[in-house]
Design a binder for these strands. Structure first.
Length: 937
DNA sequence: ATCTCCCGCCATGTT
DNA sequence: AACATGGCGGGAGAT
């Protein structure tokens, strides 16, 4: 009978007829005040600590029936029960049950209800906290850490069924492994990094990123019927998302399931779902995944329309279950993404930054010592990845499901993406392992320290510092950049890992942030340090694109590797934009990215200067830290909206079409490695200032061109707010009017001028478009830069020191440095209209300082929604015509930055750094941009 | 109304 | 057969 009461739930089900069951089920212990419990949980993060118990019998009301009940219940608390158990007293349970019954009887319905723990108190998340509290994060290996499900269920006073939910998810992360019936081994987080790496790898191989994009695209298509639909459709079909649904559980060596039963089960289980869910976070760039998208991917529906409603709902339920556990593990955090369609639940990855490169990392197995030799091998092929990474004894347990392979292939063929080329650069070599086992505590410590420091500093300072450090770091170690941003954004968890894992590998680009005179937007310029060398390795030329650094995104880099085709697609990075913005289409995504810029830093100027002066290297660590903060805040992109407002629908559609065509063209292109970084959203709405997105130029790799430097394409932004804007409305209007013409060309985005010049060089695509220029005066600056980089010729620095040349250009354009000299040489620039903007730039540049920046920001550049405290909102650069984002204020528009290649519709090019090559990235589908807002709840 | 997601029925696998 | 697992979806608390 005891069983029935407590653990019995399961069993009870069988006996469902009994009335008492329902009653008994409820956890007694919870009776303690929910608040206290919650508080406990929250406060007690200590893994080792004993499970939170209700110590309290807090009830203040003495002697009411309720009180008695509570007391009884409290008596049943796990601790007590344990003791009793030890003593062999099992009666307690029955007593408790009885007490409960009594309670029911005595209390009125109302009272009884009150006495019952609230739904929240019974949440899986809470339960998971309790569960986790029972075991150390890093148990001593060798020490027996066994978990007896029955016992746990009893102690936590929950049905065993619930424990399964938790254990299954933990199992998916290899934090526990099943030893036998009713028995699990606790591994804690020793294997976590390894597992995450593996999952990331598998996720990349499976092209989850593309899937996500596809789904978003579909959503978009469903909403709006686009002309390009056919194309997309085909692509979609080709990809065959549906095939994705099946997947095998991924195991780590030494962590194989011991029970045949588990292996045999068709795992569509929570375990597999959990792994896939985690993969989605690991491969997407803003590491934010909406439930909807996740559910679709997990379901593997090929057509959204076909989605079975109930199936979808079920999936969502399961995802909530998984999410609760992952949240308890602090790997994800719930947020919301808001778009035109409304607010949608989503989760943001808050776990450690994961390097896809698993080489060198060895799984730590507390259970078994078996370590496959494979794990050490150099990158396994896609096919092998799973297997090799997770060799199993005897049978291969996990490995990618064949369907996945198909999917991958189809995607590849469809897009003609070549990941290989990109990968070379990848830091793989340097790949630092995350020696999770070794570092965890240290890392954590560092992270904590960093966090504190960050907190202590004013946001501005933070930003500044970060930027500086980043720059430095970047210069020194390019690769670090990406990570740094990423880390920064989400300081806590990520930092920990990141620090430990600094990759030595190189990024090809180093970002330099420059303040944008106009809006106070800063630009980030990625310099390719070694430029030529690195670039050459695999691809050659860099093109600077403006990249928006949204908070979310952080610094983004777009790297396109290109290819034979002159214009590469601008693929964007994925997701960021997408995610953040939400589901917009990819094309938009690119733009978004581009468009979005982090508004943050004005400090950029200083930074840039600093760079020039000293390109030193501070520690990467600093860099990491720094970036995150600045970018981190919520950012919003206004640009899209502005544009949308002004642009005709027709125009847009046209563009899109163009893009589509573009994409096709891309086939030849190689895929880019993207390396965007994820941004971190500030967890709290922090103060950070960041704010708007600013266009950040980044360097893109052009394939054939060997130019070391990148092109800078700053986008000037006219602020949304009229007051801010430099231009009069009329001007703006004029500008806008011009756009259409520009857009007419499918290829928009490519600058003719540039092209011509480039030709010599073979630069595939140029991003600056006349139209862009027109749109934003500030953009002018960009053009020169581009040329300079490409041409190099007249410029002082160029070849040898590409980065410096870029900086110069940039600075000049911005007005930071005396313009003219270098710029003058550039025909393109000359041709460009300069006016209003120039003034602006100069003026601004002179004065740039933190305060000013702040002012600027405050005044107008940031859209209201941006200001929402916690929430981070990103507005897509371009809005769809059909669904214009409505700026809260009348925005007038204009984009501030140059649009790069993709032209308005195109997605910002993706950027990927070589180092990150792992992530394959390619562009992708075009999706209309939408406004996306991400907010923490 | 929608979002969350607890609860437990019941199918399936194991012992 | 009894027990262990865990898929699944109804339905209710939270918002």
């Amino acid at each position: 009978m005891d069983r029935c009461g407590e653990a019995g739930p399961e069993g009870k089900e069988n006996c469902s007829s009994e009335p008492c069951k329902s009653t008994l089920k409820t956890p007694l212990k919870q009776s303690a005040t929910s608040h206290s419990v919650l508080a406990e949980i929250q406060s007690n993060s200590g893994p080792l600590t004993t499970p939170p118990k209700l110590k309290e019998i807090p009830l203040g009301d003495p002697w009411t029936p309720t009180t008695n009940l509570k007391i009884l219940i409290s008596a049943a608390s796990p601790e007590i029960r344990n003791r009793e158990q030890k003593k062999g007293l099992q009666d307690s349970r029955s007593e408790i049950l009885e007490a409960k019954h009594c309670l029911q009887e005595h209390l009125s319905g109302d009272e009884y209800e009150k006495s019952q723990p609230s739904r929240k108190e019974k949440s899986l998340g809470l339960l998971c906290h309790k569960f986790l509290a029972r075991y150390p994060n890093y148990p001593i290996i060798g020490e027996s850490n066994y978990i007896c499900l029955d016992e746990v269920a009893e102690e936590l006073t929950v049905e065993r069924r619930r424990i399964y939910d938790i254990v299954n998810v933990l199992e998916s992360l290899h934090m526990v492994s099943r030893l036998a019936k009713n028995r699990y081994a606790w591994h804690g987080r020793h294997n976590l990094n390894k597992t995450l790496q593996t999952l990331k790898k598998v996720g990349e191989e499976n092209k989850y990123m593309q899937l996500i994009q596809l789904i978003k695209k579909r959503e978009y298509e469903n909403e709006f019927e686009l002309d390009g639909e056919k194309n997309e459709e085909t692509a979609t079909k080709t990809i065959g998302i549906n095939e994705h649904s099946e997947m095998c559980f991924i195991e780590l060596p030494g962590m194989e399931f011991r029970a045949a039963s588990v292996n045999s089960r068709k795992d569509k289980s929570l375990r597999v779902m959990s792994q896939k869910f985690v993969m989605l976070f690991l491969v997407s760039t803003p590491q934010i995944v909406s439930l909807e998208v996740a559910a679709k991917i997990l379901i593997g529906e090929d057509h959204v329309e076909d989605l079975d409603k109930s199936k979808f709902k079920t999936k969502i339920r399961r995802l909530y279950d998984i999410a609760n556990v992952l949240s308890s593990l602090e790997l994800i955090k719930k947020v919301h993404v808001t778009e035109e369609r409304g607010r949608k639940p989503a989760f943001k990855w808050t776990g450690p930054e994961v390097l896809s490169d698993i080489q060198g990392t060895k799984p730590i197995s507390t259970v078994s010592t078996f370590v496959p030799s494979n794990s050490l091998e150099p990158k396994p092929s896609k096919e092998q990845c799973s297997k090799n990474l997770f060799p199993t004894r005897g049978k291969q347990i996990f490995t990618r499901h064949p369907s996945l392979m198909k999917l991958v292939k189809s995607i590849e063929s469809d897009r003609r993406i070549h990941s290989a080329p990109t990968s070379p650069v990848k830091t793989s070599t340097t790949g630092c392992d995350q020696n999770s086992s070794t570092f965890p505590s240290k890392m954590a410590h560092l992270a904590a320290i960093c966090k504190q420091q960050l907190e202590g500093q004013s946001s501005e300072l933070k930003m500044k510092t970060k930027l500086t450090s980043n720059l430095e770091c970047n210069l020194a170690a390019p690769e670090s950049i990406l990570k740094s941003e990423t880390y920064t954004t989400s300081p806590s968890p990520s930092l920990v890992h990141s620090l430990g894992v600094l990759p030595l590998s190189h990024n090809s680009m180093s970002p330099v942030m420059l303040p944008h005179p106009h809006a106070g937007v800063s630009y980030t310029i990625y310099l390719h340090p070694s430029q030529a060398q690195t670039a050459t390795t695999y691809s050659p030329s860099f093109v600077l694109q403006s990249v928006p650094c949204t908070n979310v995104t952080g610094v983004k880099t777009a790297l396109e590797v290109n290819s034979k085709v002159p214009f590469s697609k601008m693929t964007t990075e994925e997701g960021d934009g997408n995610v953040v913005k939400d589901d917009t289409n990819f094309l938009n995504a690119k733009e978004k990215k581009v468009t979005k810029i982090e508004s943050t830093p004005r400090s950029l100027l200083k930074r840039s200067q600093a760079l020039q002066e000293n390109s030193l290297i501070k520690k990467c660590k600093h860099g990491q830290k720094s970036l995150g903060v600045p970018m981190g805040k919520s950012v919003k992109n206004e640009r899209p909206s502005s544009r949308a407002l002004h642009v005709d629908t027709e125009v847009i559609s046209f563009q899109e079409r163009g893009q589509i065509k573009f994409e096709k063209l891309d086939q030849n292109m190689e895929c880019c490695c993207d390396k965007e970084r994820r941004e971190g959203f500030p967890e709290d709405g922090s103060k950070t200032n960041n704010t708007q997105e600013r266009p950040v130029p980044f360097a893109v790799h052009a394939h054939e061109a060997l130019f070391p430097s990148g092109y800078l394409i700053p986008i000037a932004r006219c602020t949304q707010h009229s007051n801010e804007t430099t231009f009069s409305n009329k001007e703006k209007a004029g500008i806008c009017s011009l756009q259409p013409a520009t857009y007419s060309s499918p290829i928009t985005g490519v600058i003719p001028v540039t092209a011509s010049e480039l030709t010599a060089v073979n630069i595939p695509a140029f991003h600056v478009t006349p139209m862009n220029i027109m749109v934003s005066p500030s953009s002018i600056a960009a053009a020169p830069v581009v040329n300079s980089s490409c041409l190099n010729s007249g410029h002082t620095h160029s070849v040898q020191n590409p980065s410096s040349s870029i900086l110069n250009f940039t600075l000049q354009h911005l007005g930071l440095i005396p313009a003219g000299v270098q710029v003058s040489g550039n025909p393109v620039l000359q041709s460009l209209p300069i006016s209003p903007k120039a003034e602006h730039v100069n003026t601004v540049s002179e004065n740039v300082n933190l305060q000013q920046r702040k002012v600027l920001k405050n005044e107008s550049q940031i859209p209201d929604y941006e200001l929402n405290g916690k929430s981070v909102a990103v507005i897509p650069l371009q809005q769809q015509p059909s669904v214009p984002a409505k700026p809260k204020e009348s925005q007038v528009v204009t984009e501030n930055f140059f649009r790069t290649p993709g032209g308005p519709n195109t997605i910002a090019s993706l950027s990927s750094f070589p180092e990150n090559s792992d992530r394959v990235f390619q562009k992708t589908l075009t999706i209309p941009q939408r406004k996306l807002e991400v907010s923490d709840d």
